[in-house]
Design a protein around this nucleic acid. Structure first.
Length: 659
RNA sequence: GCUGGCGUAGCUCAACCGGUAGAGCACCUGACUUGUAAUCAGGAGGUCGCGGGUUCGAGUCCCACCGCCAGCUCCA
């Protein structure tokens, strides 16, 4: 029943939080910046309930590399794929070109990455776009010279002395981080050399097609307390055709950018006067959102959930109880004084649901409770990280909290994952990859409970038949979790869904139930979000469909078009009938030529255009054109209603969408 | 937040070395009454992101600020 996802992909859409240690707590107070409206930074790992794993910009996903592991590799040549080797060699050629053209520039590191390579340089003046072209030209010369890559191994002191003479301070720092007895290698390319453990292609002529794409600041070793370097990013492939294909993919991604489409189709906007990361939903976007949310609510009722609601603010005491004022301070906005009481804007919904659960004595007979809410939350994000709808400061989570006995956990987890896949498939996604994050070093809760939960999560993953990876120690301090990433039509991965077991809040809120034995037992709690946030999911949907939403989601499903003024009354009548039948329909009458009316509807990506001329009026029919340019036979209004009804049916569970 | 780039009409963009802001689309009006991706003509529309400064004169140069875009440990 479960579809197995394919491998590969671009690896976009992961985000810091996907790593389990939610990002907020890692910000130092000093780094917090002038977010005046916030509380003072706090130390620990944030709670990150149904973690807003949503709002992340497309960014490469990767596992952190353990420094000790790295140290163990020193001297040894790592295994790289042919493409990785080629890219790494291209990075060397770029560094050589840079040091040739810009003497005095210091080199740092230049690895291959999923989509190409980069090299970070230390140079007082920044590189310009023109510099990139000059560097490319110089690289071409090096490739044409067909210089050999030669590996040299020397003892550390010797190599160190060499780089010291060269004034390559960063290389010295790297060498000093190696174990004392390590053999250190470097590679030469002609008369240029670079500390490197390899491997490389044999000769520069083996380097294929490459292109330098951008230059930006990057911190030495990724730490913003370190010097900022110049990061030149490029990509390389074995053949020009592959490079062209990659560049075409980048163009396609640009064409599908939800910020572009959001503007073109008048779906949403973000206004600087309102504030960064705060979204205005225009009528068309709000209409799509309404369809998403209506479907979401109906499905939740159908799957044993109840909908609940909670306010946007609560007294500070609530957040003290939940612990947010300690471990989530970083991401919370400063409160407001109400009658002498401090109120804080909610960054999460869970404390409300927990409070609700405590109303009354709970029996095992009534469990589990599955309480869902489209809850709008606000979280501080640093100004540089906002990105369209993908990373915002105010967003609506499709949140739910499940309160249960520990015995119910395995079954409930399985139900949640199945439900999640059902929802995502309905929206047209078919490729998924799951990640299980297990107990970290610092954690709360009983080890045996972790064991039970991790085993249950693992069983769900296996049963799903979907590809998954385990991230040992990647769970939140309060419980293990499954993150689900979906792949869009360009193969990019996006994290939306998350299912997290929480051993923390039931303790903090003292959530319990009376068991069959008459005694009180601790509740087991699960947080989950399926779409993640409505904003982020909407962005992913928009990019996946390039704005041509499936009929059931399209803001306007059909436009009735009059060829001339004579059909205007008929057009309004047809539109009225379709609206009465429950469809989203508008009209286009007036002086434009038919071609112009068609063109406009095409640009708006409206699924059906119903052309009405004198012939259609006489026959009480419509001539429908689909947005793919195909022509439906002229049919009666009633026949078209049937056609549209079929086309607009919600493809529950993932039937192919029509038109 | 940091580094770099950018910010001109609703949108996409022009404006040489500083000389007093322009086009297309969209919008409004009129004409046209049209058969499947742009009919024609006219009109209106801009504190050139904001605030200072230099200059006889600033969209253009300088400073500060705001915003947007890209990047910010896939590791010698």
């Amino acid at each position: 029943m479960l579809v197995v996802a394919a491998g590969g992909g671009e690896g976009q859409g992961a985000q810091g939080e996907a790593k389990g240690r939610a990002h907020g707590g890692e910000d130092t107070p000093a780094a917090a910046g002038p977010g005046r409206a916030r509380l003072v930074a706090g130390p620990e790992t944030p709670h990150a309930a149904p973690p807003m794993s949503d709002a992340s910009p497309p960014s490469p996903s990767s596992a952190p590399v353990d420094p000790e592991l790295l140290a163990g590799l020193v001297g040894a040549t790592p295994t790289l794929s042919p493409l990785e080797t080629l890219r790494h060699s291209t990075a060397h050629v770029m560094a050589m070109a840079v040091q040739t053209l810009f003497p005095g520039t210091k080199v740092t590191i230049g690895p291959s990455i999923d989509t190409g390579f980069y090299y970070d340089f230390d140079r007082p003046t920044p590189f310009s776009e023109d510099d990139l072209r000059a560097i490319e030209a110089e690289m071409a010369k090096i490739v044409a010279a067909d210089l050999p890559f030669e590996r040299h191994e020397r003892d550390r002191a010797e190599v160190r002395a060499m780089f010291e003479r060269m004034g390559e301070a960063y290389k010295l720092e790297l060498i000093d981080s190696f174990p004392p007895d390590a053999t250190v290698s470097y590679y030469t390319t002609g008369d240029w050399l670079d500390l490197c453990r390899g491997p490389h292609v044999a000769r520069t002529a083996e380097i294929g097609a490459f292109k330098l794409l951008s230059v930006a600041g990057a911190y030495w070793r990724g730490d913003e307390r370190n010097a900022q370097l110049q990061h030149i990013y490029g990509t390389a492939f074995a053949t020009q055709a592959e490079l062209d294909a990659h560049l075409a993919l980048l163009e396609e991604a640009k064409r599908r950018d939800h910020r572009r489409i959001g503007k073109d189709l008048d779906l949403f906007s973000i206004d600087e006067v309102i504030g960064g990361g705060l979204v205005l939903w225009h009528p068309k976007g709000a209409r799509v959102r309404h369809v998403i949310e209506t479907f979401w609510r109906e499905e939740h009722f159908a799957h044993g959930y109840e909908l609940v609601g909670s306010p946007h603010v609560a007294r500070e005491e609530l957040w003290n109880t939940s612990g947010h004022t300690t471990f989530y301070k970083e991401n919370m906005y400063a409160g407001m004084d109400v009658d002498g009481q401090q109120y804080l804007v909610k960054p999460m919904n869970c404390p409300f649901h927990c409070t609700m659960f405590k109303k009354g004595l709970r029996s095992y007979r009534e469990l589990p409770h599955r309480w869902a809410e489209l809850g709008t939350v606000y979280r501080y994000e640093r100004s540089g990280v906002m990105h369209g709808l993908l990373r915002v400061r105010g967003f609506t989570q499709d949140d739910a909290h499940l309160f249960m006995t520990r015995e119910q956990l395995p079954v409930e987890l399985e139900r949640v994952v199945e439900f999640c896949l059902h929802i995502l498939r309905t929206f047209g996604f078919t490729d998924f990859k799951l990640y299980l994050a297990t107990r970290p070093k610092d954690y709360v809760g009983a080890p045996e409970m972790w064991q039970v939960a991790e085993a249950a999560l693992h069983a769900v993953l296996v049963k799903s038949g979907l590809p998954f990876e385990v991230d040992p120690g990647g769970g939140a301090f309060y419980g293990p979790k499954i993150d689900l990433k979906l792949k869009d039509c360009l193969g990019r991965e996006w994290q939306c869904s998350t299912v997290q077991v929480d051993f923390n809040l039931p303790e903090r809120f003292d959530l319990s139930y009376v068991g069959a034995d008459g005694a009180k037992h601790r509740i087991v709690m699960v947080h989950r979000a399926l779409l993640g946030s409505i904003e982020r999911f909407f962005a992913v949907l928009t990019e996946h469909y390039a704005g041509a939403f499936p009929v059931w989601l399209a803001p306007v499903q059909a436009r009735v078009i009059a060829i001339g003024d004579r059909q205007e009354a008929y057009v309004e009548e047809v539109a009225g009938l379709l609206r009465q039948a429950g469809f989203r329909v508008d009209t286009h009458t007036g002086g434009d030529k038919l071609g112009a009316k068609i063109r406009q509807a095409q640009l708006e990506k409206i699924p059906f255009m119903l052309v009405c001329g004198d012939k259609e009026v006489a026959a009480r029919a419509v001539a429908a054109r689909a947005r793919d340019g195909s022509q439906l036979p002229v049919m009666s209004i009633e026949a078209f209603v049937d056609h549209l009804r079929a086309a607009a049916a919600i493809p529950r569970g993932g039937a192919a969408s029509v038109a």
